[in-house]
């Protein structure tokens, strides 16, 4: 692949990759590193994606998978503390953020729930878009989101997401 083609792909897709990574990781440096990794994967995969309209969904899935793995491996996971208890512990105004919530979700739910939660609450996609990305049926998506909402009522309320 030529230098100019690499430049073109970076200018075209870099912001989409970074946008996904910063939403999940919350840290600029980590998001930048993750962007680089995912971009390198895109360089390897680009020619194999025949229908270029599938590139953007590919980026969403790949960036999400990569960031999920990073979050899963983070050492600051608090073992033995239920997510809702963690919310209560953070009453000092520091705030339990959406990112914290996602981090807890990463460690407690399976991939299908994680994907449904991420695309619904972080990317704010509707069920049609989530189905396009994950292949989950609307019924499965609803079921997975319900599992999530029932496990974290306090956290969702704190984030103002209990009405979603």
């Amino acid at each position: 692949m030529s230098q100019s083609e690499i430049d073109r792909l970076y200018r075209t897709y870099g912001f989409i990759i970074y946008g996904r990574c910063i939403r999940l990781l919350g840290c600029r440096d980590e998001a930048r590193d993750a962007t680089q990794v995912v971009f390198m994967k895109l360089l390897r995969a680009y020619e194999t994606i025949q229908d270029k309209e599938r590139v953007v969904p590919w980026i969403f899935r790949t960036a999400q998978n990569h960031c999920f793995n990073l979050l899963r491996d983070r050492k600051k996971f608090v073992y033995g503390v239920e997510p809702d208890e963690l919310v209560d512990q953070r009453n000092d105004g520091d705030g339990f953020t959406k990112k914290d919530l996602i981090e807890q979700v990463m460690k407690r739910f399976n991939r299908a729930v994680r994907e449904a939660v991420y695309y619904s609450y972080v990317e704010e996609f509707d069920q049609r878009e989530i189905q396009k990305l994950t292949g989950q049926s609307p019924a499965t998506i609803r079921r997975n989101l319900k599992r999530f909402r029932e496990a974290l009522p306090v956290a969702l309320k704190r984030l103002g997401m209990d009405g979603v």
Partner: peptide, 10 residues
């Protein structure tokens, strides 16, 4: 949907 619109931008 947003994915289609992003594909338009790209």
């Amino acid at each position: 949907d947003k994915l289609t619109l992003l594909s338009y931008v790209t």
